[in-house]
């Protein structure tokens, strides 16, 4: 009897869960987390991470030159300098935080909400920049990660980008 109740509750829970997360399933999240972790194994990984984020950001302003002005105060004119390097690490660490919170949906929502606020506060940030960022990222990640499951990453990141950009006006 108890077993039946547990099963029923489980089934109900899964059904409720299904609606919001079937696009980024538990297995998708596992895969993304496992494949992403490879980047962080080495003590010197900060240089790889900063370098990777720097490339993404430079490609972004190549694709959207008008976005460059948004990064003036983090000294994008000197991409190898300390100020921009630190900023690159902030970006990639925000991604890292989101990926590591993938299986704690409520905390993830709160974290993404905070990121949405931070980007909303920067006048001139547009959704299309995030679209470009996402495209560049999904091109670049498989080149960096030997194991890269396109479908899992795509389904999980779709939700992340949607939430980060949810407070932008344009």
């Amino acid at each position: 009897m108890l077993r039946l109740v547990v099963l029923l509750v489980l089934a109900a829970f899964c059904a409720a869960e299904e609606g919001r997360s079937h696009c980024c399933s538990a297995e998708d999240r596992n895969i993304v987390q496992k494949q992403w972790k490879v980047l962080w194994k080495d003590t010197e990984s900060s240089k790889v991470k900063a370098g990777f984020a720097r490339l993404i950001m430079l490609k972004l302003i190549e694709a959207k030159p008008e976005a460059k002005a948004l990064f003036t105060n983090v000294d994008i004119d000197h991409p190898l300098g300390g100020t921009f390097t630190a900023h690159c690490l902030r970006i990639i660490n925000a991604l890292d935080m989101a990926i590591n919170l993938l299986d704690n949906q409520d905390a993830l929502d709160s974290a993404l909400d905070h990121l949405a606020e931070q980007h909303h506060a920067r006048a001139g940030v547009k959704k299309e920049y995030f679209k470009a960022f996402a495209d560049i990222m999904s091109d670049a990640l498989p080149r960096l990660l030997d194991d890269y499951n396109y479908m899992s990453w795509r389904s999980c990141f779709k939700g992340l980008y949607a939430k980060i950009t949810s407070k932008l006006d344009a």
Binding site: K49, G82, T83, T85, H87, L89, R90
Partner: peptide, 13 residues
């Protein structure tokens, strides 16, 4: 901590 050995970027952060 990651920047402990990159003084310029550490200072910026």
């Amino acid at each position: 901590i990651a920047l402990l050995d990159q003084p310029e970027a550490l200072q910026a952060e």
